[in-house]
Amino acid sequence: MAHHSPNATNLFSFPNTDELVDSLAFFIAKAQKESIDKKGRFTVALSGGSLPKMLRGLIGNPSIKWDKWQVYYADERVVPLDDADSNHLSCTNNLFSKVPIPTENIHVLDVSLLDDLEELSDAYEKELIKEFAQKDAARFPVFDLILLGMGPDGHTASLFPGHELLAEEDRWIAYLDDSPKPPLKRITFTYPVINHAARVVFVAAGKEKVEILSQVLDTPEAGLPASRVKPVFPGQLYWFVDDAASVGVQFPRSAFKP
Rank of each mutant, 00 (worst) to 15 (best):
P161G: 00
G162V: 00
H163K: 07
H163F: 07
E164Q: 15
E164A: 14
L166K: 02
L166M: 09
A167K: 10
E169G: 13
D170N: 12
D170L: 00
D170H: 11
R171Q: 13
R171L: 05
R171A: 09
W172P: 12
W172H: 15
I173E: 04
A174C: 04
L176R: 14
L176T: 15
D177Y: 05
D177W: 03
D177P: 10
D178Q: 04
D178L: 00
D178H: 03
P180E: 02
K181M: 03
P182V: 11
P182R: 01
P183Y: 06
P183S: 05
L184W: 08
K185H: 12
K185S: 12
R186N: 04
I187V: 09
I187K: 02
I187H: 05
I187E: 05
T188L: 04
F189S: 08
Y191S: 07
Y191E: 03
V193P: 07
V193S: 12
I194K: 06
I194S: 09
H196I: 00
H196R: 12
A197E: 10
A198V: 00
R199M: 04
R199E: 15
V200W: 00
V201P: 13
F202W: 10
F202P: 14
V203C: 15
V203E: 11
A204F: 12
A204S: 15
A204C: 11
A205G: 04
G206P: 07
G206V: 10
K207C: 07
E208H: 14
K209R: 10
V210W: 06
V210L: 03
I212Q: 14
I212K: 14
L213S: 10
L213D: 09
L213N: 13
V216R: 04
V216M: 04
L217R: 12
D218N: 02
T219L: 05
P220M: 03
E221G: 01
E221R: 14
E221A: 08
A222M: 11
G223E: 06
G223D: 03
G223A: 02
L224M: 06
P225T: 01
P225N: 06
P225K: 09
A226V: 00
A226C: 08
A226P: 08
